[in-house]
Simulated assay, not measured.
Amino acid sequence: MEHRIIVAGIGPGNPAYMIPEARHAIDQARCLVGGRRALAQYARKDGASQRCCAITRDIEGVLTFIENSLADSDVVVMVSGDPGYYSLLDALRRRFSVSSLQVIPGISSFQLAFARLALPWHGASLLSFHGRVPDDQALTYGKGRLLGLLTDHVHTSQTIAADLLTRGWPPDTFFAICSRLSYDDESVRVLTLQEAVTCAPVSSCVIVVRG
């Protein structure tokens, strides 16, 4: 039987938010790939019966490791949140056949942020500032528009709030900053857009904006 690549979404961070199927695949993995923090958390401590590879900027090297490992075992690839949103899944699809991929979904930080706010998200535009900037049209103001935004260390709650103000979003716009979701020090702050501009910046979080 041809070996598979099992792409497992590990959720927002806290193991309690990982679905059982993903946890089972990780626990049984003979070959495990993931970020350094995920490997530190989920790789077998003895390491004797498990090969591991950390996902770094050398994506080509990671893909080659996976390809070589498929010769004698399945490979479990851990990705944060859900594999369907800006994860290694895109690169895997370009390198390997879709038939060799099994994807186990995970709870995304977007899902958890909207849940914390008791806010339906079926009409939301989900955008990422992780090393990229959404186009102008995606950030255009519209009454009733709902945005979910991923931030990084450059594009923070403060810089994004200021940018939305310049784009015509009203100062009293609903602006929620959701950080460290699922962890003990989780924080969910609901502000106005104007208040967010004057507050200390928060990075690596989820922002929910409602026009």
Rank of each mutant, 00 (worst) to 15 (best):
S80V: 06
F114K: 03
H122I: 14
T156K: 05
C31N: 01
V154A: 14
L70E: 07
C199Y: 07
Q111E: 15
R95T: 15
L89H: 13
V75A: 12
R167M: 10
G13Q: 05
D152F: 13
E195R: 06
G35L: 03
S128M: 12
Y42P: 04
S108F: 11
G123P: 05
S182Q: 03
S99F: 11
G9A: 10
C178E: 00
F174E: 00
P134E: 12
N14V: 06
H122P: 08
L164Y: 05
Q137G: 15
N68I: 05
P170R: 02
S87R: 09
P12V: 06
V190A: 03
L127A: 12
N68Y: 05
I207F: 00
L70S: 06
T198M: 08
D135T: 10
D82C: 13
Q111N: 14
T173H: 00
G142L: 13
R93I: 14
C53L: 09
S73P: 09
P83L: 13
F110I: 15
D74K: 08
C52F: 02
A22T: 00
F175G: 00
Q137T: 12
Q111R: 10
T159P: 09
A38D: 06
Q50I: 06
A176H: 03
L92Q: 11
F114A: 03
A196Y: 00
V98W: 13
L191H: 01
I59W: 04
Q102L: 15
V98F: 13
A71G: 14
R36S: 09
C52G: 05
R51W: 04
A38P: 01
D58T: 10
S69P: 09
S125D: 15
D82V: 10
S99Q: 15
